[in-house]
Nucleic acid binder design. Structure first.
Lengths: 223, 223
DNA sequence: ACCTGAACACCGTTCAAGT
DNA sequence: ACCTGAACACCGTTCAAGT
């Protein structure tokens, strides 16, 4: 859209919404939510905090843009040559993996800021629900149930990921959790104690996908 | 535990963890998340901000305690004379209603602070899964799927509630949303436009419960 | 049109000092 | 043991002044 001046080597690209959002995602990924500060952002962009406000209205919009930047590509798969079931599964896993890779997204999805992105997810799910042959009156409900499951559970999983200290490896974490559960009060937490051993062998992603399949099966009337 | 001096009318109860958490829940319910401030809390409790730190380690613990205060009673139903299916449904709706009445809880559930409360929910669900006769190896997975659905979807719903300006009535909000959806780009949002009319007649709580039943049916092997 | 950076009005948290 | 409240080190946001 704009002409780029390439005459001399620029010390620095001019500030732009795109660069700001990119730096924000970077900061969120590396330092976490508490790391996203207008001052820290300004430092990375080699400018003052005030400059950012020329391109972005405030922190809420910045978080919304960062969320959209991460979720929309994850959800934009090519669905030709796929059955609706496969397309839904792919989309669901795309959301799951995006939340897993950028756990801070999970905390955004309970804010108003998240709604435009959510609408895009809803649209894509809805189209596949149509393709499944769900009758029109039931389509809205079916798409809502699927979307809520996908976003809700992916968010829950991201919260777990976020709870783990960044350096920890996954097996160690599950071991520690299993150990902690085994030490719980036997009266109050009989069930959790009993299943603690299962923690190690279970895979959240696989179970998430199985849940999606279950709902799809329910929507299309069994089998 | 402690002796209460009742000799003279006290201007004010002594500070206690219980009073602090109660005031925090109150503040969260009435003013919202941004309203929970150590200064505002101190003012309500007629003391200084520093005093609160004697009873509570910091804001994270305060939010955890507020969350627990609101969720645990909602989940602590008496399950005698109930089928496991009914007990799960009641528990699920308890979580749903608690999130709906205190929408700020939905934002907490993606924090580490929420995990102890979550464990209690998991325990109660797990016991019902056992009562359903699910074989031991599958119990962990079944309880996880149910819990993630319940908490995830209730959280999603709370986010929607929170997005609505406090004064607005529900019908007006749905009308406005339906109207906005009808005005979307027909190419990009064909599905959302098409189902916009369904928004008015749909009931989140009923659909949430139907989703729970669907998962329970899936867990117990259909029907 | 776009950037600068000091200034404003807040935060959570700490801590010496009181009772 | 418990409370006080000033002080510290931060925030997001604004805005006069620059280019």
């Amino acid at each position: 859209m704009t002409t780029r001046t390439r005459r001399t080597e620029r010390r620095q690209e001019p500030l732009s919404r795109e660069r700001i959002v990119g730096a924000a995602v970077d900061l969120l990924d590396t330092v976490g939510e508490s790391g996203l500060t207008f001052r820290a952002l300004a430092e990375r962009l080699e400018t003052g905090p005030g400059a950012i406000y020329w391109h972005v209205t405030g922190k809420a919009e910045l978080l919304a843009a960062a969320t959209e930047a991460v979720v929309v590509p994850a959800v934009a798969a090519d669905d030709t040559d796929r059955t609706p079931q496969e397309a839904i599964r792919t989309l669901a896993l795309g959301v799951f993996d995006a939340f897993d890779a950028h756990p801070w997204v999970g905390a955004q999805f309970s804010r108003a800021t998240w709604r435009p992105t959510l609408l895009r997810v809803f649209e894509r799910i809805g189209r596949q629900v149509q393709a499944l042959g769900v009758p029109e009156p039931a389509q809205f409900t079916a798409a809502s149930a699927l979307m809520n499951y996908i976003v809700g559970v992916a968010g829950q999983n991201a919260a777990t990921t976020r709870a783990v200290a960044p350096g920890t490896n996954r097996a160690d974490f599950l071991d520690a959790t299993a150990h902690a559960w085994s030490a719980l009060d036997p009266g109050e937490f009989a069930f959790a104690r009993g299943v603690a051993g299962r923690l190690r062998e279970h895979d959240d992603r696989t179970e998430f996908a199985a849940g999606v399949d279950l709902i799809v099966a329910g929507i299309t009337g069994g089998t």
